[in-house]
Design a protein around this nucleic acid. Structure first.
Lengths: 328, 328
DNA sequence: CTGAAAGCGCTTACAG
DNA sequence: CTGAAAGCGCTTACAG
C-alpha cells in the first residue's frame, strides 16, 4: 500500500510551499500561472488529490448533505433520491445516506450520527425531527429541510399542496359520475395523509356528499390489501370509486379488486392514486393519479440547503388522467 | 449560531485533559469510571459530540463507503441500496451515494470525488472501473467491489451465478413444454447479460434446441418494448416463450404482449424474467423469474469491504415460479 | 504572488 | 489511569 501523497510532497517536487499547492487547488486563489503549472504537473505525476476531510476541518464545510429516508419500497423515494443526488452533484455536494427503517423511533440517533460527520445540511424525506434536535441543528447552523412532510410548523419544509391534490382527486371522481366514494388512508400520523384526506372531504362536502367508506392502509402493502377487503366485503353496498392515499398502496388495492374480488376497474370501481410513480404508467395499471412535481420539490430543497432560499414552499400537484377512472 | 463545542471545552468543564475526553469516546481505551462519568456529564451538558472528520484525519478511517450506482429505475438497485445501508449501519459505516447516470462515461471523475472523501471502500453496483483507477484504489488500500457485474477479471466482485440462472430459466420453459424460445437481451456490454444468455443457450443446446428469436432491449424500457414488437411481429411464427434478461424489461414486454398485441400470458406466450424485484409478485404480473439472493450478495460485499473476506463470490440464484410460465 | 506560522478538532505513543 | 506533546493534511491571515 503506497504512502498517501500529501500537499507537502507536491510542494517539495514542485519546489514551492504547501501554501502555494493549496492555492492551486483553491478556486479563486491568487497564484501565478508558472507556479500553477509546476504544481499541477507535480500533482499529476504523484497522483495527488487534496484530502477533502482535512479541508473540511479548516473550512467548516464538508460538502456533504445527510439524507434520511424511511423506506425505499415506495418508488417515490428512489426517484427523489435520484433527483436529489443529481441536483446536489451540480453544486459539488454529495449525499450521505441514512435509512431510518423504524422511522421516528431511532431518528434522533441517526441524525446525531449524520451531524457527527459535519454535514452541511440535512434532508428528511417523509420523516419528522423532534424539536430538541431541530433546535440543535439550528444552533450549529445546519439547515434541515423536511421533504414530503410538514409537521413541525417551525422548520423548513417542502411539500406538495396535498390538500389541493385531495380536492383534485375527488373532483375528478365526481366529474366521472362517481358518488359512492371511499378513501383508503395512509399513516394518519403523516401530514401528507391528513392534508390529502382533508382535501378529499372538502371536495365531497362541496358536492353535497360525504365519504362513503374509509379504511386505513398505513402506506403499507398488506394493510392496504386488508383495507380493500374490508371496504368491499359487502357486495351490495360497495363504493363505486376509491381515492387511495398513494400509488404504492393503489397498485395493491387494484390487485385485490381485480384478482381477488373479481371486480373490473374502472367499470365497477374507479381508482385514483397519489404521486405518479413510474409504475402508474404501466399498461397493467394505467393508474389515474395526482402527480407530485418531484423536480420542483427537489430543486427548492437544494436551494434551501444552499441557503439561497430561506422559506418553505408548497408545490402545486397535477392530475394525470389514465384509464382507472373512466366514466361509469 | 452557537460556537461549536470541542473536546477542549469538555475537558475544561470536567477538569481533565483532552486526552481523557478522547479516551472516553474511544471504545476500549482505558479510563477510570470516575473520569468517564465526569466527562460524560460535561459532554452531555455542553451537547458535545466528537467530530468524526477530525478523527478520520488521525485514524485514516472515515467510516464511509462510497456507492456508485448507474440508475435507480430498476427496483433491483433501490433494494440493494437499502440492504447495503442496513448491513453497513450495523458496522457503524455510512454510505456516500453517487449516481453515475451516464454510467461508464464519467465514472473516473465520480470515483475520484469519492476517493477525495477518503472513503474506506467503494462498491460499484452494475458499473465497472477502468484499470487505471482500479490500480490506484489498490495502491491506496481502498477495497473496491463490483456488485452485480464482474468484468474486470482482476478485482473483487460479487455476482449471482448468472449462467446458472440462464440455464434454470430455459430449463423451466422447456419443462413447461415450450419449444420456440426467444430471448430479449439486456445491454450486451454487461457481464450479467452475457452470462445469462450463455446459460440459456447451453440449456437449449442440451435439449437439442436453438434460440428461436433474439432481440436486444438494453435493460431499457422503450427498447424492451420495441424489441418485443419486433420479435412478435410475425403472428404465424412467433415464439411460445421468451426469456427476458431482467424483470424490469419483462414488465414492459408483458405489457406489450397483452395490451398491444392482444396475446395472453402464459397461454400464448410464457415469460420469465430475472431478479425477482418486488413488482414481480404483483397480481397484475405474477412474473416467474430467477431470484438473485440480494441478502447474500450484500452480506458478502460488506465482508469484503470490512476486509474479513478477501475473495470474490458467485451467489446461487433460484427459480421463483409464478403464473407467467404456465404449461401450454 | 509567495512562504512561514498558526491552527482546524481530534488521537496516540510516551512518560509518569 | 492520566496529561503534555506531537501530529493527521490542509487552509488562511499575515508579512513580505
Amino acid at each position: 500500500m503506497a504512502d498517501k501523497v500529501t500537499s507537502q510532497d507536491v510542494a517539495a517536487r514542485a519546489g514551492v510551499s504547501r501554501s502555494a499547492v493549496s492555492r492551486v487547488f483553491t478556486p479563486g486563489a491568487s497564484v501565478s500561472d508558472a507556479t500553477a503549472k509546476k504544481v499541477r504537473l507535480a500533482a499529476e505525476q504523484l497522483g495527488y488529490r487534496p484530502n477533502v476531510l482535512a479541508r473540511s476541518l479548516l473550512t467548516g464545510r464538508s460538502r456533504m448533505v445527510g439524507l434520511v429516508v424511511g423506506y425505499l419500497d415506495n418508488h417515490f423515494y428512489p426517484g427523489l433520491l435520484e433527483q436529489l443526488c443529481q441536483v446536489l452533484d451540480t453544486e459539488g455536494v454529495n449525499v450521505l445516506m441514512f435509512l431510518a427503517e423504524d422511522a421516528e423511533a431511532n431518528l434522533d440517533q441517526v441524525v446525531n450520527d449524520l451531524l457527527d460527520y459535519q454535514v452541511d445540511g440535512l434532508v428528511l424525506a417523509s420523516v419528522t425531527l423532534g424539536s430538541t434536535l431541530a433546535t440543535r441543528c439550528e444552533a450549529i447552523g445546519v439547515p434541515v429541510v423536511e421533504l414530503n412532510r410538514s409537521d413541525g410548523g417551525q422548520g423548513l419544509h417542502v411539500v406538495s399542496d396535498n390538500e389541493m391534490g385531495g380536492v383534485m382527486a375527488v373532483e375528478h371522481l365526481i366529474a366521472q359520475g362517481r358518488r359512492r366514494i371511499g378513501h383508503i388512508a395512509g399513516w394518519e400520523g403523516a401530514s401528507t395523509q391528513r392534508a390529502r384526506e382533508a382535501g378529499a372531504l372538502s371536495a365531497l362536502r362541496k358536492a353535497g356528499l360525504g365519504l362513503y367508506a374509509r379504511e386505513v392502509g398505513n402506506f403499507d402493502k398488506e394493510q392496504a390489501r386488508d383495507a380493500t377487503r374490508r371496504m368491499f366485503n359487502d357486495a351490495e353496498a360497495r363504493p363505486d370509486a376509491v381515492f387511495v392515499a398513494n400509488d404504492f398502496m393503489a397498485f395493491h388495492v387494484i390487485d385485490v379488486l381485480r384478482y381477488e374480488l373479481g371486480l373490473t376497474v374502472p367499470k365497477d370501481v374507479a381508482v385514483i392514486g397519489f404521486d405518479d410513480v413510474p409504475t402508474a404508467a404501466f399498461a397493467a395499471y394505467e393508474l389515474t393519479t395526482i402527480r407530485q412535481d418531484l423536480d420542483a420539490m427537489v430543486r427548492h430543497t437544494a436551494e434551501l440547503l444552499m441557503g439561497r432560499e430561506t422559506s418553505s414552499r408548497m408545490i402545486t400537484p397535477s392530475l394525470v388522467v389514465r384509464s382507472t377512472c373512466g366514466a361509469t
